[in-house]
Write a protein that binds this DNA or RNA. Structure first.
Length: 733
DNA sequence: AATACACACCCTACCGCGTA
DNA sequence: TACGCGGTAGGGTGTGTATT
């Protein structure tokens, strides 16, 4: 175990002003008021560049969403630099952290995570969950202190480094007193923790009553006024006081039950009692005092089988509001992003309070699968684009039936490459499709789908008596009051002539039971539905024809919806419309996107080669931008527009690609110290000079899969090599 | 009849872990 | 390291019903 840890304390103040938000530091913390500091959870950039990078990325997302923070893209120099991240950002990072990084963070806190059940290895999720719990407490404790005593701001962390992601400098002596390792209460029961908290609440100075700790906009603003005396100042929620324990053991149970939801057995969870997640007025104690904190995530299998009745205060994480969930972060940012003008400031100032409000509970889904893996609160903002593959069904099905079913199979992989080329779909889409097809097939094998309810085909859909009456009444009539008249008439008949309505109802029933009318007899609605059904038949016919070796393409125009509908094979389409000028706009867009991606790839490769020119360890090895290193944080791409984070070109759409290419001159690739030391194989993406230099196709795409020709070329060269070296042939796709 | 809405369902995409 | 696998989020669409 490490000795006393260095914890950097800063106070971060966000100043809202016209046109943006700036941040400024406040004076260095002293032991006396350390509780007002923010625990900067970022790790040293040198050792943990990936975190810094990803953290920065998340920060950029945040700032981008807010649209008014100082970021790389924003050339306005900040009033002062800001280290670390807000609470929201910090939590948003957790799901992105590697296992080692999580372990490192836990080590910093002298926390050891053990699995009570021991029936499975301790996983990344366990560490993440524990760390989240711990950090939640840390933040909440500080926030509790912050809301209780904000007048003393004489000490804060001073820093002036130009690069916020680099290693923090701090006065260690200032923090040591706070970080003293006191005696640790090993695993206290829930009630003990509760009572401990209560004692603190009652004995601590400056502790407000149960309701006094509930943060309201006014209280928070009032508090902040005391702090900064800056007009329009708002304070980040993430204000923390740090307290260390010698060793904290976290036990995470693994249960054989289907529910692997991890719940703290301590109740109430701090996430429920903290100011940001205040629930029924429970106040957060001032934790400058020696307070034993034991968070026992889970101790015994089955222990979580507590019902709501047994633990009314305890809630499943799935229903626990948590302001730190990335999903919420995204949600909030979206709100800020769309707001303009006057409302922007309002939202800016309200945002933290809103996050703490019970009125905006954010679900914090905890899910599990049947293998005992739990996923906690990885509620990432996922904006998916859904590829419409219907047009390629004939091709896909044809290849699938030919054996394109197992991606491990070389033949299948060749087929995937072929299909991808023919359909212009990314291979990943094809693979996903195969995967889902396999699942569907297996599922149907296991449990044949129950005979589908016979659809009401070519028949007027069912409707209530009133609806039918209205339809009947309004036939041949028009005008703004027809509907009202119909309803009026219906009510009148209900009163004056119920017999008539009874007969009418019988007629309706009879109509429902009537045999299918012919297409000609159908009304507009019936014809619409019939057309849809017929189109489905047509699609199937086209697919079947393609299976038999026919190519074709059919296009229809639906006048009612004013939409085009088409199905067929790509070759069939080519037959009909050989000219590229007739291509659909969707295909054109796809082509344009691919072109932009290729341009970006090339430009980034160039920039990369220039960047590593003076780095001997990388210069000779890496010809192309190593996305693996980038994802590990060994490389930082700076100068992207609007706080964007660099990703693989295939991950960008047209707008972002264009934006990046436009700012290409501003983009700088920086290799971190860790990256400079890195001589690994970069997750298999970087080849040795001998192979990469002699293999022209290897330079073509760093991460993309090769086409069929390349694949075959690799097969042959692999076989040749195997013959020479008598070693296993490895075909890297 | 037109429109709006809620809901169900299908399908693609993504995640995390296990495995070869 | 890549892929399989199971779970599931989320987009898109169809359907039924209520409302005007």
């Amino acid at each position: 175990m490490e000795g006393p840890r260095k914890i950097v304390m800063v106070r971060i103040v966000k100043r809202v002003h016209q046109g943006g938000v700036q941040t400024r530091p406040v004076p260095t913390a002293t032991p006396s008021n350390m509780q007002q500091a923010v625990l900067v959870t970022a790790l040293s950039a040198a050792k943990h560049a990936r975190i810094s990078d990803s953290a920065q990325a998340a920060g950029e997302e945040l700032q981008h969403g807010a649209g008014d923070h100082d970021i790389e893209g924003d050339r306005t120099p900040p009033v002062g630099s800001v280290l670390g991240f807000s609470k929201e950002t910090t939590f948003a990072l957790l799901p992105r952290m590697h296992l080692e990084e999580l372990q490192s963070e836990l080590n910093r806190r002298n926390i050891e995570v053990k699995l009570a059940g021991g029936d499975r290895p301790r996983g990344r999720g366990d560490l993440e969950h524990v760390l989240r719990e711990v950090m939640t407490r840390e933040y909440e404790e500080a926030e509790g202190d912050e809301s209780m005593d904000v007048s003393d701001t004489s000490s804060t962390f001073q820093h002036g480094r130009s690069n916020p992601s680099s290693t923090f400098e701090h006065d260690h002596s200032n923090t040591s007193s706070l970080l003293e390792h006191g005696s640790f209460l090993e695993e206290v029961s829930s009630s003990e923790v509760l009572s401990g908290l209560n004692i603190d609440q009652t004995t601590a100075p400056n502790v407000q009553g149960p309701t006094g700790n509930e943060e309201t906009p006014s209280s928070r603003q009032a508090a902040d006024k005391n702090v900064s005396e800056t007009p329009s100042t708002d304070t980040f929620l993430g204000q923390v006081q740090v307290k260390k324990e010698p060793i904290e053991q976290y036990h995470v149970a693994t249960t054989s039950s289907s529910s692997n939801t991890v719940q703290p057995t301590t109740e109430p969870s701090t996430s429920q009692i903290g100011p940001t997640c205040t629930r029924s007025g429970t106040s957060q104690p001032n934790v400058t005092r020696a307070q034993n904190l034991a968070v026992r995530i889970k101790t015994e299998p089955g222990a979580e089988e507590t019902t709501e009745e047994e633990q009314p205060e305890s809630e499943d994480l799935s229903s626990e509001p948590c302001v730190s969930s990335p999903g919420q972060l995204s949600h909030e940012l979206d709100m800020v992003d769309v707001s303009m003008g006057e409302e922007e400031d309002k939202l800016q100032s309200e945002e933290p309070v809103k996050a703490a409000s019970d009125d905006s509970p954010q679900t914090f889904p905890t899910t599990s699968n049947n293998r005992g893996n739990f996923r906690v609160a990885v509620d990432r903002p996922r904006k998916r684009s859904r590829t419409d593959m219907t047009a390629h069904y004939p091709t896909l099905h044809q290849y699938y039936q030919k054996g394109m079913q197992n991606c491990k199979d070389l033949k299948c992989r060749i087929m995937i490459a072929e299909v991808a080329e023919v359909t212009k779909l990314p291979e990943i889409n094809v693979k996903n499709w195969i995967h889902n097809m396999n699942r569907k097939a297996e599922q149907e094998k296991r449990e044949p789908p129950p005979p589908k309810k016979p659809k009401i085909v070519l028949r007027k859909r069912q409707c209530s008596v009133l609806s039918c009456f209205k339809s009947w009444y309004m036939k041949g009539k028009s005008g703004p009051n027809v509907m009202k008249d119909a309803a009026k008439e219906y009510r009148r008949l209900q009163k004056e002539d119920p017999e008539f309505l009874k007969k009418f109802q019988e007629e309706v029933k009879k109509a429902k039971d009537m045999p299918k009318p012919s297409l000609e007899e159908l009304d507009t609605g019936g014809k619409k539905q019939a057309a849809r059904e017929l189109y489905k038949v047509l699609e199937k016919t086209v697919t079947d024809l393609h299976t038999c070796g026919w190519d074709g393409f059919v296009e229809f125009y639906d006048h009612s919806t004013k939409k085009r509908r088409s199905c067929g094979t790509p070759k069939g389409k080519e037959l009909l419309k050989p000219s590229s000028s007739n291509e659909t706009s969707a295909e054109k867009r796809r082509e344009e996107t691919e072109e932009l991606r290729e341009r970006l790839r090339e430009q980034m490769n160039k920039k990369w080669r220039a960047a590593v020119q003076n780095i001997p360890s990388l210069r000779s090895k890496r010809k192309r931008f190593p996305y693996g290193m980038h994802s590990e944080g060994k490389i930082v791409v700076e100068g992207l527009p609007d706080g964007m984070t660099y990703r693989r070109p295939s991950d960008f759409g047209t707008p972002k690609l264009k934006a990046i290419l436009k700012h290409m001159d501003d983009i700088v690739i920086r290799v971190t110290e860790e990256g400079k030391e890195d001589t690994s194989s970069d997750s298999g993406q970087v080849q040795e000079p001998s192979t990469s230099a002699s293999s022209p196709q290897s330079d073509k795409q760093d991460s993309e899969t090769p086409n069929v020709a390349e694949l075959l070329s690799e097969v042959s060269s692999g076989l040749a090599q195997a013959g020479q070296n008598r070693e296993e042939v490895s075909i890297d796709l």
